[in-house]
Design a protein around this nucleic acid. Structure first.
Lengths: 143, 143
DNA sequence: TGAATTCCTACCGGGTTAGTAGTATAATGT
DNA sequence: ACATTATACTACTAACCCGGTAGGAATTCA
């Protein structure tokens, strides 16, 4: 029951694009260096996010990625579902996930589980994530 | 981000022990047949639950497994954590899971995620699961 | 043209999952 | 005593997924 590194990286990347792409494109090379992630791997993740419509890609020199919406219009769930799939704790609760749902005695438990997960990840926006990170960075000056 | 089959089986097994072990032991052979799960695999799961203190094992003929507490004294989380581990969505939130937590900008999000998961799975007891299943079985007569 | 960037696809080593298999050990019923 | 019925323990395995690595093609800018 773990979110993969890919999902964490995707979240980190989106935050990085917000923080360093206010006017210009953000290149994966830069992000990968800042975030200390394999550049090649991060390229694949960025491509996936672009394919999913969360980032716009610009090819060529001085290209990179920009947001397609404003930070408060993305939820963490939007981002994680692109890389992780549905985020549901078992496939039974997905459409067509199980053929004998009507007989299943535990489906209510799993559906409830799925609901709290989706509700949480969709309650946090990219804007929230960026602000939390920046607050924390600010506090670190006083350590 | 999926609960494994082992976790689902563990929950199903515990329910089965409640439903068929009010006075006597429940053998894995019987449970495996009722639940349509590989007997040998279910044996391993039962052993794990016994090791974790959730079941008491009785060897020999007419042996099997019984509960060690009353159904309302187990939470779904108790059962799932035995087979699945911590249930936390990333290892960073576990003790010693990450060495640079103080610098991490997303840890609050992940901690919050972990909290809603633990809260949910610990809000449902084995007794709840059994009752939901029995209610559902009752309703099926009217289909 | 050359440098910088994304795009696409193939590959790979290591770990996990969902079992299978065999044998040892213990308790019961007759 | 002994056959039967259980759990206990350990080893093995095929298939899948994860976290990359690698190489080159396509595109854009200076």
């Amino acid at each position: 029951m773990k979110i993969s590194a890919k999902g964490r990286y995707a979240l980190d990347l989106m935050i990085d694009v917000v923080q360093h792409g206010s006017d210009k494109c953000v290149s994966i090379k830069e992000s990968a260096r800042r975030l200390d992630i394999s550049q090649k791997y991060l390229e694949q993740i960025a491509a996936q996010l672009a394919k999913g419509g969360l980032l716009r890609s610009v090819r060529g020199s001085s290209g990179g990625y920009t947001l397609t919406r404003k930070p408060h219009q993305y939820t963490a769930g939007d981002i994680l579902r692109i890389t992780e799939g549905s985020l549901s704790p078992i496939s039974c609760v997905e459409v067509g996930g199980c053929e004998k749902l009507s007989e299943c005695g535990t489906i209510d438990f799993w559906t409830g589980f799925n609901n709290v997960i989706q509700k949480y990840v969709d309650s946090v926006t990219l804007d929230d994530l960026v602000r939390t990170k920046e607050e924390k960075a600010g506090n670190n000056y006083y350590i």
